[in-house]
Design a protein around this nucleic acid. Structure first.
Lengths: 343, 343
DNA sequence: TTCTCTACTGTGAACGCTCACAGAAGCATG
DNA sequence: CATGCTTCTGTGAGCGTTCACAGTAGAGAA
């Protein structure tokens, strides 16, 4: 790439420079830039050569000004707590989305809106058209941002099924309920009969669905529901630890625990160890997520793998389709049981 | 905020609408928008009211087109491996930078450039002026992107001292060497005399500096350098585990290990446990970073806290200053020894 | 031939904003 | 009363692109 082939000036080359260099008009260059329809092969080639020679890069601001599109996507995190940011799943999701968008040459804007103040600011920013669509990562129900954006007609895809949201909004989620079913069936297949659970927050879809799967399978197995076997946490390690302690106190004959996240499962392992219960001999422990925490703990966790790479790809695909005018869509992806040492 | 107070049209209000609503000219509105100099209090007030009534939000594309600035900052990760993305420090840094920028109402663009292809594309994108500056997060030396951006005159701040970079580039770093010194002194103060170390990659500043600190303190203490006590890893858990095994094989009388990252320290703990060594009774283990891994492992890790919140704040501060015309600057921030159970 | 159709090309007018400039008004100074 | 200065305001131009439209050339049909 020859720098400043068009002369010694400082300013980056414009579409005019390319047109002059190629001996065609602005219009033709613009057409080449936007798919090359109605452009003769000769002109096409001349323009491409000129672009290469001048080092031309399209000015996205000028383009956006007229098209009204921004050619960028927002990745919005409205979680009030910072917890989700520490969640290893977040990493995978963020990276996956960034890469999936990079394949379309679309930059991703990271937006954090933890406080109500920030949420208001970000909402204004988004509805002003500064991004073409939003990947929404927020687990809690009644998220006002989602509703506001939806009302403003901003293309939106949520990660996980948004609960308590009045109307149609696209989402991509793992099949939480089915994953939970798989895990509990696995625990029962090992001969366990006193299977407890530490649920996620019950205002999140994951929390609700995983608990539902657990109850379904126990019911199918003819085991009657015992509320002493059910405690809930908030996906944090500490809450897992506390949950396990409560379980041991309420039902000391417990022989397995289905934990709704790997991070909480780590806490459960710690609590069991402190109580002198061996894992998996005395108590089998199953996690959820297959996060790095699953192999970082000892014993390594049997867990349910969430297909994060597929989730991020699908989120991007659905969002772009929606920006292109398609209707909202829901995508549910299958999970997978990963057997390790803890069961 | 009244929606569409200026009429029933769909399109968002422009500066013209605000001007009409306030009974002033575009110029006056623009001046209010940009600091309010040379604007009478009455006009100021009228414009602000009109903005509120119309729900006006500035069109950044139009503004950027003329100012040449983009009012956005890039967060660039050029690590070829995905390891850094899994590093908990990354989270903290990314969040810190996003928030520090949000305070200035500047959006952050996340850019991943793992392959040479992507690096080329991103470099073009950046040098075309689509961001005003870059926060560079990359540990390895000889990073071609940093050099290219610097040559192109793009304001740039690196996280950690870039090694092998020809000329001046701003950076913000924790005082790695001093942190290492603190930790090794701490280990010696416990009466340990056979102190091994698992270093980071020696083509990273952290790897080099932490090893240097280790050697300095041992030398000061009159202990002679024993190369069997030094192995190197790549900051991953697995490499910590492998490193500890090598240490035990080479120097089985080891009574302490200074590990250059918490993640590796987790691996070291696992290897020691498997070898039947008690921590801290038989072998004291010191980590580095004070990442979530430090409290997630058992025993909880004594470690060196990196001031990530301050690092991200400083990176943003230095970058904005540089965009504002100031010269590059280097900022070194102190670390802190955090004592827990592993020593 | 003349007409229509298709493939291609060039041109003027926006998009919404900032910037430079011209000018008005108010006030003090000579 | 003219002059200069400061503070404030409006206006025209232009940033780099796309879009709609007009127009040209060539091929095929009537």
């Amino acid at each position: 790439m020859t720098v400043n082939a068009t002369g010694g000036r400082r300013r980056p080359p414009t579409i005019h420079d390319v047109a002059r260099e190629a001996g065609v008009s602005r219009g033709t260059v613009s057409r080449v830039l936007n798919g090359g329809h109605y452009v003769s092969p000769a002109a096409q080639e001349a323009v491409n050569a000129a672009i290469r020679r001048t080092g031309y890069v399209v000015n996205r601001h000028a383009r956006s000004l007229i098209t009204g599109r921004s050619d960028s996507i927002g990745f919005l995190l409205t979680e009030p707590q910072e917890r989700f940011f520490e969640d290893p799943n977040f990493n995978v999701l963020l990276r996956g989305c960034t890469q999936a968008l990079a394949a379309h040459d679309i930059p991703l804007l990271l937006m954090l809106a933890g406080t109500e103040d920030e949420r208001r600011r970000i909402t204004r920013y988004i509805t002003a058209g500064h991004v073409d669509g939003v990947l929404l990562v927020s687990s809690h129900s009644g998220d006002p941002v989602a509703e506001r954006l939806r009302e403003a007609g901003v293309p939106l895809v949520a990660c996980g099924k948004p609960i308590g949201l009045a109307s149609k909004v696209s989402y991509v989620a793992a099949d939480d309920r089915d994953g939970a079913r798989d895990m509990v069936r696995h625990l029962l297949s090992l001969g366990r009969r006193r299977v407890g659970t530490v649920t996620g927050p019950l205002d999140t879809p994951g929390g609700v669905e995983r608990l539902a799967g657990y109850r379904e399978v126990l019911a199918q197995a003819g085991l009657e529901y015992d509320e002493r076997l059910v405690v809930s946490g908030d996906y944090s390690r500490a809450s897992g630890e506390a949950g396990a302690e409560r379980l041991l106190a309420q039902a000391s004959d417990i022989d397995a625990v289905f934990v709704a996240s790997d991070l909480m499962a780590q806490g459960v392992l710690a609590a069991l160890q402190r109580a002198g219960r061996r894992v998996p001999q005395d108590v089998a422990v199953g996690g959820f997520d297959d996060s790095p925490a699953a192999v970082a703990s000892s014993p390594e966790l049997t867990t349910i793998r969430q297909p994060w790479d597929r989730i991020s790809n699908e989120m991007v695909r659905v969002l772009l389709a929606q920006i292109g005018g398609e209707d909202p869509a829901a995508v549910i992806l299958p999970t997978e049981l990963v057997k390790r040492e803890s069961t």
